[in-house]
């Protein structure tokens, strides 16, 4: 039997909320798919579109950007800037032909370990039928 496709997800998690949220999921021993490569960033607003393009280029099947809920940003307004920028990046990636499901954003607070596991579970479920991402991937 052929092995099932396991998508690789790169998750940019903000240090103050989402990363702590994923930690909470971990220390609470919640079960969630091991397909995520978390990258801690200081703020979702610090995620440059370049990071996202490069994650796809280096073979990510999906990219998640996660930050604090609006109003909860450690830097007061970083996630508002992120919200605008990510909306534009999402539109652009869709326009050049990347499946819109491959790029997601979520708000996960430090207390939402459960939400984090759900976001990842759903993301993996969406990505599995899509298969590997080859549109922006670097040629081997």
């Amino acid at each position: 039997m052929a092995e099932e496709f396991e998508p690789k997800i790169v998750a940019f998690l903000c240090k103050w909320c989402s990363s702590a949220g994923s930690d909470l999921a971990g220390v609470s021993r919640m079960q969630y798919p091991p397909n995520v490569v978390p990258i801690q960033v200081m703020c979702s607003g610090s995620v440059s579109p370049l990071y996202i393009f490069n994650a796809f280029k280096k073979g990510a099947d999906g990219v998640l950007v996660s930050g604090c809920h609006p109003g909860d940003c450690h830097y007061i307004e970083g996630n508002y800037y992120a919200r605008r920028r990510i909306a534009l990046v999402k539109e652009l990636l869709e326009f050049v032909g990347l499946e819109p499901e491959r790029f997601q954003m979520s708000w996960v607070s430090a207390a939402e370990g459960t939400k984090y596991t759900e976001v990842i579970k759903d993301f993996v479920d969406v990505l599995k039928p899509l298969g590997p991402q080859s549109h922006l991937r670097r040629e081997q």
Partner: peptide, 16 residues
């Protein structure tokens, strides 16, 4: 400038 500003009512339907 567009990416140097934001509004409270910016769309966020795409965010989970």
């Amino acid at each position: 400038a567009l990416v140097a500003s934001f509004k409270d009512e910016d769309p966020e339907e795409f965010i989970r």
